[in-house]
Design a binder for these strands. Structure first.
Lengths: 228, 228
DNA sequence: ATCTCCGGTGATCACTCGATAAACTGATCC
DNA sequence: GGATCAGTTTATCGAGTGATCACCGGAGAT
């Protein structure tokens, strides 16, 4: 890359990175390794990916578990950098458009082989961070979506959605999520146009929302407003 | 249990089972073990669950991998014993009722901690049997559902559904599937009434089906239909 | 009673795993 | 140029893995 030392011998492996660089390189490559092999992936295989020896890992992490925790942190916090609060709640734009854009961006972030596999592996281990993430999806995404849907439909906006409504949103959300699982975990053929898949799923969800909402609530209601 | 030998000393471990019994006991307990620990679960832990010693496993299976294959076979074939062909295609009953009953029975079969975990673990390994199962769901369930939906809607029934329609069915199916994942893998709180979840998901799917079906022909976007 | 068959055990091998301690090496400071 | 510090390696440990072998012992057949 950079040839700041032109007379330097070309070494197959450049060693002696700075501590911070080496540490983050461990995390990066560990994410790749664990995504493929699961957390049973060995520390020696990891070191081989870096071109270093295995004990070096323990200069940077007290144990393999600590490395794994670091991988969790990185993976689980990655999709949070989107800033969906304002995206979902910006009522100056049509709800349909907001939802479409949100899910396109959100799935761009999490529909990678790496992310999905780490997520499922950690989910199977039943870790707290996984439950935390699920709770965050519920509070920060689904609850917000439901609130906007109720507002759009002219229904009373309650602070917390009913269990049935929430389940409705979960099934919708899970259906989209499972698209990524089929594509990147199962390697199964899917509809290539992800945006259309989201659009179709949204059509169905929005069309059916009121129908369920009126059953769960006591109120009768007004027809859905037409999108622009 | 049975006291056919009343004078026999009560032994904590009754040994010497018949070959067939022992073999199937290995598969059963291995399924439980692998569901919890993943396929990294050890042969010694398995033997402990049976109350026997570890080398005994190799009397019945040439290798651990062969045991695992047997576990796959059992788990993947389990939900197939339902016989959904006639259930889904019996046009003497309303489609809505057929779908509701099918998904209640189907999810009764696969929504167990054991089944879902083995399924996800094997899916992460990318085995052929997993792709086979996904293909079977597509051909035997989703394609059949779509055919019945088109018939119900008075649309031409084609032999193979369009990619967009199929994706629609997948998102619907995946949404229901993900309910099981949330409940039994993530141990997350879900709507307890599974039948209502299915019913709500069906309402949405059926309400939105026609709309997508007609859009897949020509891509014109039309306002959302008002529900009754 | 004795023989024979076969389910089951004890001992062990080669290997891999995560982890530790000590030695090595290259860059930086005085 | 020598001391020093930090990044890296070599050697190794103890525990655990899948797998193999010779052997044991109880139940049924003769």
């Amino acid at each position: 890359m950079n040839r700041k030392a032109p007379n330097r011998r070309t070494r197959a492996k450049q060693k002696r990175l700075s501590a911070d660089d080496r540490r983050s390189e461990f995390v990066t490559k560990a994410t790749e390794l664990f995504a493929e092999e699961g957390f049973a992936g060995g520390t020696r295989a990891l070191a081989r990916k870096l071109g270093v020896t295995q004990p070096l890992l323990y200069r940077y992490f007290p144990s393999k578990d600590d490395l794994i925790k670091e991988v969790y942190r990185k993976v689980y916090l990655e999709p949070l950098e989107i800033g969906w609060e304002k995206l979902l709640s910006d009522r100056s734009r049509p709800l349909r458009v907001r939802l479409q854009e949100f899910y396109e961006i959100y799935t761009d972030a999490i529909f990678t082989r790496k992310w999905l596999r780490i997520y499922l592996y950690s989910g199977l281990k039943g870790l707290d961070i996984n439950r935390w993430y699920v709770g965050m999806v519920k509070d920060k995404i689904l609850t917000r979506i439901l609130r906007e849907c109720r507002h759009e439909a002219g229904l009373a906006v309650q602070s917390r959605p009913s269990a049935a409504e929430l389940e409705l949103a979960w099934v919708f959300h899970g259906g989209i999520f499972y698209y990524g699982v089929r594509k990147y975990i199962y390697d199964a053929p899917v509809l290539e146009d992800k945006a259309q898949m989201i659009s179709d799923a949204l059509d169905i969800f929005l069309a059916g929302f009121e129908k369920i909402a009126e059953n769960s609530a006591d109120r009768r209601r007004v027809p859905i407003k037409v999108i622009g």
